[in-house]
């Protein structure tokens, strides 16, 4: 655990995997878009509008998965106080926020022609909006507190508090009456999406996953380099004053 958390080792591993992750993204995204737009059937009820599902549902999955990543990294940051966990959490937050925003916008664009409305305040839509605000709050805390160690602590605590929202999002469509339909891909039981429609959904989900990994590594590389630069500058400053 701790050997993986060494920043130098992480950077070496990351730059080793980066080209493969990028290749994975390009392959999955290109084929995913092809199947999603050109080579998948329309739906019996909503026709061509089902194509929005292929960008909306994977974004929702990444929004939640990104938050779980943020929470696990925040947990590691509080318990083991490891700087790499802070870097990982801090760099993952904007990516998760963008996926949540994509989920909200595409969902709204899907809702208007199918449900008949861009937005309703039902339990599912509201809890996803809360997720977006949790991401924004996390990012804001980091920039609002000057002292890095204190900022890390405050932001991590907020991230962990927000975890309650994840099961609420997941089960909102089962616990309460909502406009949003129940889940098609179930934890137990058969998926209620036709196999011809599952392929583009799977490819786009993988593409988003690869994208998350690539952008996370870029951001972490930049963040670690920045920290080192600061440390070096401080050391030089000390030499000069001594």
């Amino acid at each position: 655990m701790h050997s993986f958390a060494n920043p130098a080792r992480f950077l070496r591993l990351a730059s080793h995997f980066l080209p493969w992750l990028m290749l994975g993204f390009i392959l999955c995204f290109a084929s995913g878009l092809y199947f999603a737009l050109f080579h998948s059937p329309p739906d019996y009820l909503q026709g061509e509008m089902v194509r929005v599902m292929y960008v909306h549902v994977p974004a929702a999955i990444m929004a939640e998965a990104g938050y779980m990543f943020l929470a696990v990294a925040s947990f590691a940051s509080i318990i083991w106080k490891h700087p790499l966990a802070d870097v990982a959490a801090r760099c993952a937050a904007p990516i998760g926020a963008v996926f949540t925003l994509i989920c909200l916008i595409t969902g709204s664009l899907w809702g208007r022609p199918t449900w008949g409305t861009y937005w309703v305040w039902d339990a599912r839509l509201t809890s996803v909006l809360v997720l977006f605000f949790l991401y924004l709050g996390y990012i804001a805390l980091w920039s609002a507190i000057e002292d890095e160690a204190r900022a890390a602590k405050a932001a991590s605590i907020l991230a962990l508090f927000g975890v309650v929202n994840i099961p609420i999002i997941k089960f909102s469509v089962e616990w309460w009456h909502t406009l949003h339909q129940p889940a098609s891909i179930k934890l137990v039981g058969k998926t209620t999406i036709d196999p011809a429609m599952q392929l583009p959904l799977l490819l786009m989900t993988l593409a988003y996953g690869f994208y998350f990994a690539v952008v996370l590594i870029w951001r972490m590389q930049a963040s670690i380099a920045e920290q080192r630069l600061e440390a070096r500058t401080r050391a030089q400053l000390r030499e000069v004053t001594a």
Binding site: R51, V55, P94, V98, L101, I102, V214, V215, W218
Partner: peptide
């Protein structure tokens, strides 16, 4: 239009985030 707009949103926001992250790195 709704399908174009939603795919457009995805392409624009994902490339903007990727570009800014890559430039930082």
């Amino acid at each position: 239009g709704f399908i174009y707009l939603s795919y457009g949103t995805v392409l624009v926001s994902l490339s903007a985030l990727a570009l800014s992250s890559w430039l930082k790195a």
